[in-house]
Design a protein around this nucleic acid. Structure first.
Lengths: 208, 208
DNA sequence: CCATGCAGTTAACAACTGTTCTCTGGAATT
DNA sequence: AATTCCAGAGAACAGTTGTTAACTGCATGG
């Protein structure tokens, strides 16, 4: 199946991507639940009916955007957590990595933060699923760490969830300070690092 | 000014409240940015134009909802944090208090969680402002605590922010499990308590 | 008791929405 | 070379939207 190298399929995916890009742009100052199908096709310069060739509805489009925004992010988890030496060094790298990702893909980050609790159920579900996958990956990584000896599975899951939530909080904080004075961005990074450090301290003394 | 005990003003506030209640109900499965003014008036059983007697726009309605949802919540802060004796006891009480609030006002909690990063700028701003007030109140309360000796102001603010974010995360977690099996709700509460305990541990060993 | 203020109504507007059916041109298959 | 397939266009539909203007009736303040 899909053994077609064709020009046909290529062009189709091109307009599909154009629809997704246009939608992401329009979602800068509105929620998915108010995004109109005509609005999107108009921005791309295509007939409204063409939309149906790619998506059943704007909710469907939203689910595809979740995959695009979070699906390709999983490799980052391992590289963030594995090269451990100095703890403060790792925290600094993690914060930098998040800041870099937000700067590189602000629209994606905004979309996820906004629609995580947004008004479109299938999209909420898709995000929840992806974040659960992240948490599971973090948990697995934590389990290999030497400092996790004696931790119950529930405790590991708890910590993994805390890290994932913290990652999202930090990302949306950076998003808010994207076009803010340099000083404010620096303070945001400092706060994020401090919070991660406190979690790290709690982690070290958990088994007392 | 407003020395009117009148029946007039009373009736006005009554329909104003009806508009806000109806809006809150309609926002159960959509975002504020897609909420139509006519939709709200229709739910109340009033002419569309009557809306303008109370609100400039649905965004304006949203800001009023923020006040209603968060404004009356400030007294809770002090009572949550002051009667300290046993730490685990305090955590249990805090989690119970959040769970109770979510059960009593699910629509308000959903609204705040959804619109905190939602598509309507003035509403985001209003929520940010209220949460900043919460964080400041928590910081002030933390500063009076004996265990905060030697903490820098930035550290206190960091911890206060962490607590506020955690409160919101916990609330929205409870919201998701509102009509879920009893067992799942119990696990959610356990996880929330565990996370608060880890933050507490980190807090106790912060100055090492 | 009368004049004013004002919450809510009615009617109408231009613009917009999602969805349907029919059609077309060119790539893909045979 | 003939045929099928299908991404996209075009037109039309019944509803919906926010906003305007002029109105009505009643509680209010003089």
């Amino acid at each position: 199946m899909s053994h077609t190298p064709g020009v046909r399929q290529a062009q189709k995916q091109k307009t599909r991507q154009a629809l997704m890009d246009a939608a992401l742009g329009l979602l800068e100052d509105q929620s998915l639940s108010s995004l109109g199908l005509r609005e999107v096709t108009r921005a791309v310069g295509v007939a409204p009916t063409a939309f149906y060739r790619h998506f059943r509805s704007t909710a469907d489009l939203g689910v595809a955007l979740v995959e695009e925004a979070l699906g390709s992010l999983h490799p980052m988890i391992r590289t963030t957590m594995s090269p451990v030496e100095d703890d403060d060094e790792r925290i600094a790298r993690a914060v930098e990595l998040i800041a870099g990702h937000v700067a590189a893909h602000p629209a994606h980050v905004r979309f996820v933060a906004r629609e995580r609790h947004g008004g479109v159920q299938p999209v909420r579900e898709a995000i929840r699923e992806q974040l659960a996958r992240f948490a599971e990956e973090v948990r697995a990584e934590l389990a290999t760490d030497a400092s996790a000896a004696g931790w119950s599975d529930a405790d590991l899951r708890m910590l993994a969830g805390l890290y994932v939530d913290q990652m999202l909080i930090t990302a949306s904080l950076f998003l808010e300070t994207l076009d803010a004075p340099r000083e404010e961005r620096r303070r945001a990074a400092a706060t994020a690092a401090r919070q991660l450090r406190l979690i790290g301290v709690g982690r070290r003394h958990w088994l007392d």
